[in-house]
Design a protein around this nucleic acid. Sequence first.
DNA 1: GTGAAAGCGCTAACAG
DNA 2: CTGTTAGCGCTTTCAC
Lengths: 349, 349
Amino acid sequence: MTPRGRGAGAVTLKDVAAAAGVSVATASQALSGRGRMTPATRERVRGAAEDLGYLANALAQGLRTGRTRALGVHHERAAANLRTPYFRDFLAGAVEAAHRHDHDLVVLSSDTSRPRTTAPRVDGVVVVDPIADDLRARELMALPVPVVAGEHVPSSMPPCAVVAADHATAVRAVLDAAARQGVRHPMLVAPDENSGWGEVLRDVVGAWSAERGLTPVLVASRFGELSVDRHEELLAPVLADRPEVDLVLAASPFAAQAAMAVLRGMGRQPGRDVLVAACADEPALLAEDPPVTAVELPAYALGVACVERLVAILEDDRGPAAALGTVQTVPAPVHLRASTAGALTRAMA
Amino acid sequence: MTPRGRGAGAVTLKDVAAAAGVSVATASQALSGRGRMTPATRERVRGAAEDLGYLANALAQGLRTGRTRALGVHHERAAANLRTPYFRDFLAGAVEAAHRHDHDLVVLSSDTSRPRTTAPRVDGVVVVDPIADDLRARELMALPVPVVAGEHVPSSMPPCAVVAADHATAVRAVLDAAARQGVRHPMLVAPDENSGWGEVLRDVVGAWSAERGLTPVLVASRFGELSVDRHEELLAPVLADRPEVDLVLAASPFAAQAAMAVLRGMGRQPGRDVLVAACADEPALLAEDPPVTAVELPAYALGVACVERLVAILEDDRGPAAALGTVQTVPAPVHLRASTAGALTRAMA
DNA sequence: GTGAAAGCGCTAACAG
DNA sequence: CTGTTAGCGCTTTCAC
């Protein structure tokens, strides 16, 4: 009958009420500052709570009020991705903002092998990098709590409030720089339709190319593929097939590294015969020869912005629905490096 | 009467029960796999839950069962410290282990300006670097849930299960290396009695010195001081006062950097006239001239170990009390570098 | 096999 | 001004 375990021994409001000689209801109001009562009573209850070391049970409070003062963060394979600086920075930003607003920040378990059987005890959720085939993400987005997506939502997922890096501006800066070097045959290597980021990149490159009467080559990769080798396997045949390509714009820095290797293997010199750039930065890109132009994804700022957005939605009287389609962007610095700085020497006319 | 807000609209067990034509009690048992009933009934309930997208309310479940499947992490000024690699690595390890055991991981709000009014909804807490004057840490340690300290607990705090780096072994390796270069007058700069780490370092250096008939100079600093300048202000007078010191062992890498600067300013050449080492590593130490010997604190491994320990305590039938005094250590690699490699040229006999 | 009822700790109406 | 009452969603005896 009594719950097994850890909760046992905790001081409850009943204990405080008894000690102060009032009812639990009065005690509750005394502590929350609500209700009208003599200052004396209120002080007596406060004192009792203090003496007993009373801390309200957040579970019970949350059950009753529907508010938990906790926010959740979900990332597909959170534990594994926590090895990447991107998610770490993001999380650091999210924690900073959550704590500033006096909320706990819950890193939701993301063992995707089994579906959650339980709705997380949070007031809202940030889904970092929503991926269409991430079942957990879908579950969370179906929850009756507001959701903010950290990055664009693939079109096959339900809409929600979005906070994303300003890829369009950043990628256009890269493309313009490449154009100045005479690029005519851009290739985009980007995650497939499971990723909203991939969709955005295709849109931007598509629009930019159309404005110039160019036709980009589009190659689909898998989101979250961190292996350079795998990307080489993907790119070797397509690059062999398309010798006219004079710019490889890769979403992933690992794909960019792979492109460098493959091109070199084909006897083409990156930065001269062909330009290379990435839509996400990584220290390794600086160590390449030549160093690879890249967009810096502002992970920390995104973490902050996502949580700020979530808090704003929670406090919005119009209700969470008002936020559904909205997109907010965070600037993404562009680092132009030697891989896009050399005038193209056109090997083949 | 109905709680305002976010919870509204959620599918409850009542809805599932109604859809399946059973009572909530039966529905509960059907889903949890407990209780005896016809497979047909169980399937019907499962199906209804599936169709409605039912997720159990973790708050209610937790209130009833006393288990939330969530673990908390507390760090003084968590948000600020999340800028340091140490806490990031620690957190990454903690998340990995927590998720492996199917628990959410809550980064507890650590706005220390106001005390928590609410007990966090977690089954147990990891307190990273417990500091004696951290009120939040004390609050958490008074909670009726098990607590694991990530690093030694200062003697003025209540005891709990401890998981710490093996400072003793590591520091002794550094001291032995220094002794081989002829060190006779070691100085230890370590956090004051607010920090269990500081206490351990003083104990180790004290014991080691006693074994050799040496008397170490002990300087107390403030835990968490990340500024090199502040450390310089602290060290300049003491080092001027104690020209005989031939080894500065600093707990913090920033104190080690400060020592390097101060010594150089005094015309003493670190690595030759005087040795320098740190009890925590930092990239900047590699860039010093000469590079500074340091102990690498295994943050990620500590994060994993703390959570593993917490889970073990939660599953231990003997109850959490059994774990109270225990200390578990994680190896801390030592990086011997040039700052302790040169034979001391004794400027003064 | 299944349902009714109690209660985890708390808050919000409504009486008194 | 304060106490009584009801109920948040769930689990768990205990009758039927």
